[in-house]
């Protein structure tokens, strides 16, 4: 297997007096879709915030593309190509769709902004119809497309998708997972953080199950899908 593009070891992070992540080890290889699964409150979003530099880890090493990034700023991490599409989209509501996308290349790939805009619009034709509309007035599905499009504008080497299916209708969820597959088929490594277990396992090459701040299960998507412990862990039975 190729050298992992992202590897974390012994990662501990938390807020105040509480450790939310209690020693995580994980790898993502180039071209892989890796899923991190877990129900609400197990630390998925904390993991993403730590990876993108918004939250400083208390211990452990995060290596991205051969460099340690656990002490890097969010801007430096984006610059290195690790781009995080956050839960709840976090788009800029009173700016136009076009401006949101332009800011996706604020730190990285600015020189190729025009070309990447074309590519994003080819992927999301709906956004092209709404370039001048305020992002806050888009539907939930469109906002999610915009958030992913904004992430793609920075030419990610690894894209973290935090709950992309959250709050979408079943049909749109289907579409979203299809999109993840398409992006990956073009060579993009994706870290998919989801509550939607079966669909994520179906898609992911490998997956980790996060519970109470630690990975309790890991394996290929098919292995995990067949593992009776999964249901136990996931449903807490």
């Amino acid at each position: 297997m190729a050298d992992p593009i992202l590897s974390i070891s012994g990662l501990v992070a938390g807020y105040g007096g509480v450790d939310v992540l209690r020693g995580l080890d994980m790898q993502v290889s180039p071209g892989e879709i890796v899923a991190v699964l877990g129900s609400n409150g197990v630390g998925k979003t904390t993991l993403n915030k730590t990876l993108s530099g918004v939250l400083r880890p208390r211990a452990g090493v995060i290596r991205f593309d051969g460099a340690d990034i656990q002490a890097a700023s969010p801007a430096a991490i984006v610059e290195a190509g690790l781009i995080h599409v956050p839960e709840g989209r976090k788009i800029f509501p009173d700016m136009s769709v076009l401006e949101n996308l332009e800011l996706g290349s604020y730190r990285r790939a600015k020189a190729r902004r025009a070309r990447n805009l074309e590519r994003v619009f080819a992927t999301f034709p709906r956004l092209l119809e709404r370039t001048n509309q305020h992002a806050g007035t888009l539907s939930g599905g469109e906002q999610q497309m915009l958030a992913i499009g904004r992430g793609l504008m920075g030419e990610p080497r690894l894209l973290i998708l935090d709950e992309p299916s959250l709050g979408l209708s079943p049909l749109l969820v289907e579409e979203m997972f299809g999109l993840v597959k398409t992006l990956n088929a073009e060579g993009l490594a994706i870290l998919l953080v989801e509550q939607n277990v079966m669909q994520s396992l179906d898609l992911a090459h490998r997956a980790y199950v996060l519970e109470n701040g630690a990975f309790v299960l890991s394996g290929t998507g098919a292995e995990l899908a067949a593992n009776p412990d999964l249901e136990k862990t996931y449903l807490g039975m």
């Binding site: 993108s52 530099g53 918004v54 700023s73 969010p74 801007a75 991490i77 984006v78 610059e79 781009i83 995080h84 599409v85 956050p86 989209r89 976090k90 788009i91 800029f92 509501p93 009173d94 700016m95 401006e99 332009e102 800011l103 996706g104 604020y106 730190r107 990285r108 904004r150 920075g154």
Partner: peptide, 19 residues
Amino acid sequence: KAIRAVAKEKLGASLVGID
């Protein structure tokens, strides 16, 4: 644009690399 982005969405701004 970064100023306007930070005004409304600090986390989103950090995640596109705005300092």
